[in-house]
Every structure is written in C-alpha cells, then in structure tokens.
Design a protein around this nucleic acid. Structure first.
Lengths: 213, 213
DNA sequence: GTATGTGAACTATTTCACAGCT
DNA sequence: AGCTGTGAAATAGTTCACATAC
C-alpha cells in the first residue's frame, strides 16, 4: 500500500472492477488475472494492475487474483461495507427517477428524504419516501444524518440549495443542475449534466463524419 | 486555428463557456475577459484561453472577448447551429425522465423515438413520443435518421441493443446501463452510470473524514 | 511457465509566464 | 495599461517492460 494521491479515474474504475468481480464470485470463478479482468472491462492489463496497486497488493504472482478476497478488499476500500444516507432535492422527472431507481439501495446508498419547493409536488409518495417542503430540509438532513445530497432542481435554484446543504454539513453533492456550484474545499461536488453529455456527443458527430448528415 | 487533437475535457468545458456566454448575451453584457469567464465557471483564466485556443482566435488583446461573436462561433464549432435526432431505448423510470426532460430540445437534441421490449411499456405516451416495441427499432431508426442513441435498459440487455444501433449506423451512444459496451472504433460511447457517480462520492466520504460517521 | 507489482518512459493535460497586440 | 495567444515548464495519468514471486 502506498499513500500517493489516487487519480479520480482510478477510483471510478475500481468500482468497475468490483462490479465484475462480484459477477465472477457469483459464477463460482475463484481466480482471475489482470489480463482477463481487463478483457472483461475493456481496459488494459497494466491499467488494472496499476489501479489496484494504489490500494495494496492483492494478487499472487503467477496465479492472479482470488476473486472473493479481492471483492472483500475492494468493498472495504470503497466504503461499500456500510450504507450512506442520501437526500434528493427536487422532485421533478429526474428527481423522481432517482427516487425510484432500484440500483442505489443495492449499492449501499439509501435515499432517506426528498424535498421540493413546489407545493404541488410536496406530498407525492415514491417508494417509501414522501416529498417534503424545502423548509423541512434543515431539520430532516440533520435528523436523518444525511451525508450525500443530490441536486435535481433548476439551475437558478441550485446554488441556494447547495449552500443549505453545505451549511448543514453535507460533505458530498451530486449535481444534476446545469450550472457550476461554488462550495468550500472540503465539500466534494460531482457534476452530472445530462444535456452536456449529449451535447458532447453531438460534437463528435460534427467532427467525425456522421453516418446521417 | 490549429488542428491538433482537442482534449475531451476541453470539449466539455466549451459547452460550459457557451452556457455562460449565452447568459451574458441575455444580460446585454458585450465583453468578457478570460479571467471573468473563468471566475464564473470555476475555471482558471489560462484554462479558458487554452481551451478557446484549440478552435481559433476569438479575443481582442487588451479587451477580452465579444460575447455575441464568441457565442456564434462556439455554437458553430459545437454543431449547435443544427438539430440532432435522438432515440431512447428503455422506457423505465430513467428513460421516461429523459423523454420528458425539457433541456434536450432547447439544445438542439430532438428525441424522436422511444423503444422498450416490455409490452406493458409499449404504447405509453410521453410528450409527443409513443413508446414502440423493440422490433420496430431498425425501421424507425433509419426512417427518422437517428444519429444518437440513448441506452436506458438493464445491463444485460445493453450490449444487444448497442449492437442493433451500431449496425444501423448510429454513431454515438449515451449509455446509462452499468456495463462496459463493446463497439467499433468509429462509434463513440459515453458512459453515465448514476450509481457509480454516487458510489464514487461515498469513497470520498470514507477517505476525507465525513461529517456524519 | 505464468502473472504480479512497479519503476521508467511516454503521453496527455494543465499551469505558468510573457511577448505582442490594441 | 490590460488582456490575449501560445510556447515552455510542470503535473497528471497511462503504458511499457521486466525483475521478482509462485
């Protein structure tokens, strides 16, 4: 184990490895080489070894990696051996999709509250969550010990909501609003801008000759 | 204008600049410096200039950039002076959210079709789009000249759908399924894995001391 | 023989810093 | 004087290649 800074890309790929390894364990495959794991994840063998190397030595020379051991180790590293409480702010289409998305719980991410400033959306029930008015946010965030906030409100409301969350000690924010949020250094923001992802693709269509012009 | 390869991050940031510039034009602000634009987008002045420099010389020494001119130039570069046809495969919660998301049309991305293999979802009407059975996909993709596909199906169906789209000449795919897609080199895939984004955040909570442990 | 772990080489990207234009 | 545009320097990230371990 070294303690050099881990590239963000590595962290994201470790989740990919874990997903694949979990699959392998289910299939009763006990051992895998970096080359095979790379094959399955569309990454190079060197990349796999280098990424894992940031966190320790998990392999056996000449043999590869024990899938069960690697799974356990990666889950520990990634904090997946425990659950995190998540709150969604904004209960429009996207917020609703997130609330009903089954993938989160499976991965240790419990959505425990949802908020909206629009009174027509307050009271809407999705799964076991009821949308609450924005005024309730401070109380509920603290009471439910929320550590991750998801921003799914329009761009112009995003900074205000962010400020509330930050003040309440929420350390990580997933931002779906198409705007750049200002936060202190100790808060981590991850931007997911769906339109921008698509727009970026359209750039490739313009520049690499498209099939349909 | 040089013709060196443009980093992917630059392309993504150009959209951020364009968004900000569009705002400035609306506010009747005619000129902006790289420093101010950087301030507004949480990026450095050097980054702004370098990014723009990949596409040409838009500024005036000593003065900055003319917002209207820059807006027009960036829209041209990014292919935003025309519209692209998009198809969504998978009409679950996420697919439905995408279908009703107003942000796409505004940005020249027309969702023109939606498909699902589940007969219970076929026929569902969202906005002006009716969900069609997967069997219709080949015919409709060609007829409507779709150039961007969005994959919002479960992981195990994703590769099959991708293969269909690729065979039909769709050049860009936005993939929401939590799996690695195999595509030929001339097809561009962008992965957006919502769970992984959240999971990545949980890693930061584990590693930077969290507020709520 | 086979596959890991890791420095070293390479490549990509960002930041610096300043010459040159207005 | 102020700010762009851009080589050069610095930093980050990926790939190579091989000594080492089993």
């Amino acid at each position: 184990m070294n303690n050099k800074k881990v590239p963000e890309g590595t962290i994201s790929r470790i989740f990919i490895y874990l997903r694949e390894i979990t699959e392998l364990v289910k299939l009763n495959i006990h051992t895998i080489s970096s080359a095979e794991l790379g094959e399955r994840t569309n990454l190079s063998d060197a990349q796999v070894r280098k990424d894992l190397g940031y966190f320790g030595q998990f392999g056996v020379s000449g043999a590869g990696y024990n899938t069960q051991e690697l799974k356990t180790a990666l889950e520990k590293i990634l904090g997946k051996d425990r659950a995190w409480n998540v709150a969604v702010v904004g209960a429009g289409h996207l917020g609703s999709a997130l609330l009903t998305y089954p993938g989160f719980k499976e991965r240790g991410l419990d959505i425990v509250a949802a908020f909206d400033s629009d009174s027509r959306k307050v009271g809407k029930q999705m799964k076991e969550i009821t949308v609450q008015p924005l005024e309730e946010l401070p109380r509920v965030i603290q009471q439910k010990k929320v550590s991750i906030g998801i921003i799914a409100v329009p761009a112009k409301e995003a900074q205000g909501v962010t400020d509330m969350l930050v003040k309440l000690g929420v350390g990580c924010i997933l931002n779906f609003a198409p705007t750049s949020l200002n936060v202190p250094d100790n808060v981590k923001v991850k931007d997911v801008d769906l339109s921008r992802e698509l727009e970026t693709l359209s750039y490739f269509l313009v520049n690499k000759k498209a099939q349909y012009a």
